[in-house]
Amino acid sequence: MEHFLEKLIFRSRWVMAPFYLGLVLSLVMLLVKFCQELIHMAPLVLDMNENQMILLVLSLIDMSLAGNLLLMVIFAGYENFVSKIDTGDSEDRPDWMGKVDFSGLKLKLIASIVAISGIHLLKAFMNVEGQNKENLAWMVGIHMVFVVSGVLLALMDRIVEGPKSHH
């Protein structure tokens, strides 16, 4: 009975696979929105002022960072919790793939969130005259919470790791 239960629990990791497939679909949906934004704005580029162009580029970077974040979660989550991804001898396999553990994923996740939050904050500052000062203060406060959370997560990981000898 114990052996059966352990096999069942071990095989239950495959229940996570549909979650990662859903995230792949989310990546495709993000690509659609990226292309939609690019196609919508491309004809207007000659009529844009500098600030509008910078805001467009920041929006595209924001979506790109979100896509990178999704990809990291998909790859690292699947490899850490479901199964190793067999890419054969592909030269295109990212160096970090298979090396990002849960702790590394957590730090990459918070770093991406801080970057995305920073881009949203920069976009708000690009149009500071049109921003409600209270909303701007909330945005700065929330961004700082993300930054402090990231620092604390990194500090906790460093404490858990303990002193390492560098021989």
Rank of each mutant, 00 (worst) to 15 (best):
A137R: 05
D62R: 13
W14T: 15
V151I: 15
L44S: 08
L69R: 12
M63C: 03
L152F: 14
W96V: 00
M97F: 00
P94I: 00
V57R: 15
S64A: 13
D95G: 03
L121H: 12
N127P: 05
Y78V: 06
A124L: 02
C35L: 13
D95N: 08
L56T: 01
S59E: 12
S117W: 07
H120T: 06
L23K: 07
G104H: 06
S165A: 04
H166C: 07
D101V: 11
Y20K: 02
L152Q: 07
S103A: 11
R158T: 01
A17Q: 01
V140M: 15
R93G: 00
I85K: 08
K133D: 13
V57M: 14
P43D: 06
M41V: 06
L71V: 10
L21R: 02
L153N: 01
V147P: 15
G162R: 14
S59P: 04
V148G: 01
V145R: 11
F102E: 06
S149A: 10
F4L: 12
V160C: 02
K123Q: 14
F146P: 08
L71D: 03
V28R: 00
L58W: 02
D92Y: 06
M63L: 12
M97K: 10
V160N: 03
G77P: 04
E129N: 12
D62G: 10
I54Q: 13
I74D: 06
A17T: 08
W138G: 03
L155H: 10
V100P: 14
W14Q: 11
S59M: 05
V82G: 06
I54C: 12
N68S: 04
F19A: 13
Q52K: 14
M53R: 13
N132D: 14
V100D: 14
D101P: 09
V15M: 04
G98M: 04
D95W: 02
L25G: 05
Q36D: 13
N135H: 09
L56Y: 01
A111G: 08
